[in-house]
Structure formats: structure tokens, C-alpha cells
Amino acid sequence: MREIALQLNYQDNRWHAHNEQISINADELSGLDAQIKDYLIKNYKKGNFKIRFYFDFNNFPLWMRQYMPHYFNRETVVSI
């Protein structure tokens, strides 16, 4: 299974995910999943992929970070 890692941000009321090859955004996380699937179909034709989203905690105001230093990481599996 191939792995793809993306950094996840939330800005201007939208989720943004990016790495060196991919840059996508959507209103909901499910929208990101759909766009990732489209990207994989276009670039790889077939295969199983583990997609890891790492939330960038810098999205939170500085004063909040002392209370909990972690938001979430997310993994999805896409088969095409």
C-alpha cells in the first residue's frame, strides 16, 4: 500500500490539504477525500493508498496551544 502524507489547515472557512505534489481545498473533509480520489485516478490508474492528514496546530491562536498541543491526524484508505 502506498502512503501519501498531507498537511491539513483550516483557513477562510475551508479545509486545505497540501504536499509538494497536491494542493486541494474543500468546505468539508469529505470534499478533500473526493478530490484526492480524483487525483489518484488521474495519476496512478489503480492501487491501494493510505492517505495521512496531519493537522497543522498553528491554525489555533497562540494562547490556546498551552491547553492541548494536538488537534487530530487522520488516515483514510483509498482503493482505485
Binding site: Y10, N13, L29, F55, M68, H70, Y71, F72, R74
Partner: peptide, 13 residues
Amino acid sequence: SIATAGAIKAKPV
């Protein structure tokens, strides 16, 4: 509240 929001993947707002 941060841990729960993260767990249910709520929008950070």
C-alpha cells in the same frame, strides 16, 4: 473541548 473537537474533526472555529 480541543480534544473532543479534534476527535470528531470539527472545524477549528
